[in-house]
Design a protein around this nucleic acid. Sequence first.
DNA 1: GATGAAATCCGAGTCAC
DNA 2: GTGACTCGGATTTCATC
Lengths: 154, 154
Amino acid sequence: MADELDRTDLKILRLLQANGRLSNADLAAAAAVSPATCHRRTQRLFEEGYLTGVRALVAPHKVDRGTLVMVGVVLDRSTPESFGAFEAAAAKLKFVLDCHLVAGDFDYFLKIRVGDMADFNRIHGQQLIALPGVRQTRTFFVMKEVVDNAPLEF
Amino acid sequence: MADELDRTDLKILRLLQANGRLSNADLAAAAAVSPATCHRRTQRLFEEGYLTGVRALVAPHKVDRGTLVMVGVVLDRSTPESFGAFEAAAAKLKFVLDCHLVAGDFDYFLKIRVGDMADFNRIHGQQLIALPGVRQTRTFFVMKEVVDNAPLEF
DNA sequence: GATGAAATCCGAGTCAC
DNA sequence: GTGACTCGGATTTCATC
């Protein structure tokens, strides 16, 4: 985590995270450097992996993905093969936004977006409990999204 | 959810979600429409709320936010005031990426990014359990991020 | 009512310094 | 790191279907 980032780099990161459509000219003005400098800095931030991409945010409820569900998963066995098989299969599911191996009462936590509860019930029965090595799942329907996917503060 | 989106609109949404830096010219070519049409369509998608923004993705471990933690929260009381106070306070915390009111064994689920475990322990002791109305928290350290914040499929 | 062609203008990307 | 120069794309207009 050796920070080779100066004030300007940090400013560029924060500005682009807030608005990825910012033109290089506007970005340069906001970061108080010349456009040419800004352009080189930004390119470097991409090349060195500080910025991994730029993504437009689609409103979930506008494309029939308005229902959010958190699912805790417990596996049968705690072997590397078991974990590997589960992860490979879970990562392929289109409705899985997050899949994290955790320490605690569950093995994995999934964050899932679907159209509605009926949709989720079908997916749960047909795809989630059918994932390799799943012993048990616990479903937490999200009733209110207070904060979802907030930008990183640093 | 009345879909007024045709094939072209969906294509634009998917392309911009995958790459928010796409130039209008490239986007038009990929969506098989003229640049003028593409520009108008894209603008409409923003104006009508299908696209809510464009965000550059910052690599968490590059800015000292490499540790991800999920936290389940149970409140003392289940009154609207209690929920409201908790939500208002939680939404202000800079390290909270997600805060969702859920049905099940917890009242809320938080997704939190910090620098390391020591960082989290400090935050947990000083800020999380100090949130209004918190009776109990359960912490799930993420040991492996299999999928994090995958783009929405629709 | 939406489209695509053309015309203008501004910014990206590259140069020398 | 700055300033200038060139080229390509963003944005608007307009005729057309």
